[in-house]
């Protein structure tokens, strides 16, 4: 048992998927620790949705394998997955309650279970009165909440949310964020997929960065940031900045009261502070500048582009052209 529960909830191994000529997912591998929150990040068209569709068994990989809690992914696993696709909707002319019952039962719930849980969730979102309403009579925000309820109704072990906050107003976005965090605290693993990296920066412990179908970066957010840390600090000061500071340190982005300072090789933040004090700077604030995921992504992509020139990335496995 302990073995199973500590196995990655999702493990993707060398997965490749092509649609005709277009390679959507190219040799992607990552493992997701149980009850983690993982950000699947990348620009539009990078292959995130293609990857998710394979995890949800909607499509199958051309090559490679996907494991769910250590077992090869099979037709039983979708019942443990809750999937909120980017393109999402509801049956317009069905009643809210009836719709939730249907979707819950499709996930293997009994009718009674599904009804109990649906009523519970509707109450949580203050939608108790909408059970007998048709979806087309609901406001857009309410419809999005019903969609979310349909996704989590069967208490999935893994929640996959594709662009979950797109089109949500701030109130609903916050409410959903809170519910997701609560589900996560109760032991649900969550995959966020989005191209708006700043939206999930503070939510995700792990990220997988995807570009052009390839997995270009993955790991703990903290580690990645450390790796991409360029050792810059933002100094906030009052009065005038002594000229000597500029002579001794590498200054960037000066404003009226702040300046960014690049540490010299071998120099520590304490060394820098000490030096600044010695130079008589009136320090009001001193803060490490960590790169945002956006910046890391851009940096990573440009770095890869440079290194990829001598070795074109289309030259992959021999099976790449098998189905033409």
């Amino acid at each position: 048992m302990t073995d199973l529960s500590s196995a990655p909830v999702i493990e993707v191994r060398n997965v490749r998927k092509a649609y005709g000529e277009k390679v959507a997912v190219d040799d992607v591998s990552f493992a997701m620790p149980p009850d983690a929150i993982l950000g699947l990040l990348g620009p539009n068209g990078a292959g995130k949705t293609s990857l998710i569709r394979m995890i949800t068994t909607i499509t199958a990989p051309d090559s490679g394998a996907i494991y769910f809690s250590g077992q090869p992914l099979s037709g039983y696993h979708p019942r443990q997955i809750g999937y909120l696709p980017e393109e999402r909707g509801l049956y317009k002319s069905m009643f809210v309650g009836e719709q939730l019952l249907y979707l819950g039962q499709l996930k293997g719930m009994s009718a009674r279970d599904a009804e109990d849980r649906a009523r519970e969730w509707l109450a949580k979102f203050e939608l108790e009165g909408q059970w007998k309403k048709k979806v087309e009579e609901l406001s857009k925000g309410m419809q999005q909440q019903v969609q979310f309820i349909a996704t989590v109704l069967h208490d999935p072990k893994l929640l996959i949310l594709d662009e979950p906050f797109s089109g949500l107003d701030p109130v609903n976005a916050n409410r959903m964020r809170a519910e997701i965090l609560r589900l996560h605290a109760d032991g649900t693993a969550v995959i966020f997929s989005t191209h708006r990296m700043e939206q999930v920066e503070e939510l995700c412990e792990y990220i997988v960065l995807i570009d052009h179908g390839r997995n270009i970066l993955q790991g703990k957010v903290r580690d990645i940031r450390r790796e991409f840390n360029e050792h810059r600090y933002r100094l906030t000061y009052s009065g005038a900045l002594p000229a000597a500071v500029g002579e001794r340190h590498h200054l960037m982005n000066p404003t009226v009261s702040t300046v960014d300072i690049q540490l010299a090789p071998g120099e520590s933040s304490n060394d820098l502070l000490r030096s600044l004090l010695n130079l008589g700077v009136q320090i009001q604030g001193f803060q490490e500048l960590l790169p945002s995921l956006n910046e890391i992504f851009i940096k990573r992509v440009t770095r890869l582009d440079k290194s990829a020139t001598p070795e074109p990335r289309t030259a992959t496995t021999p099976s790449a052209h098998a189905n033409h």
């Binding site: 696709p85 393109e87 909707g89």
Partner: peptide, 17 residues
Amino acid sequence: MEEKTNRIVEVVISSVR
């Protein structure tokens, strides 16, 4: 077509073949 234009179909086929 209704399921396709309503965008419900992807939710459904994540549960049903």
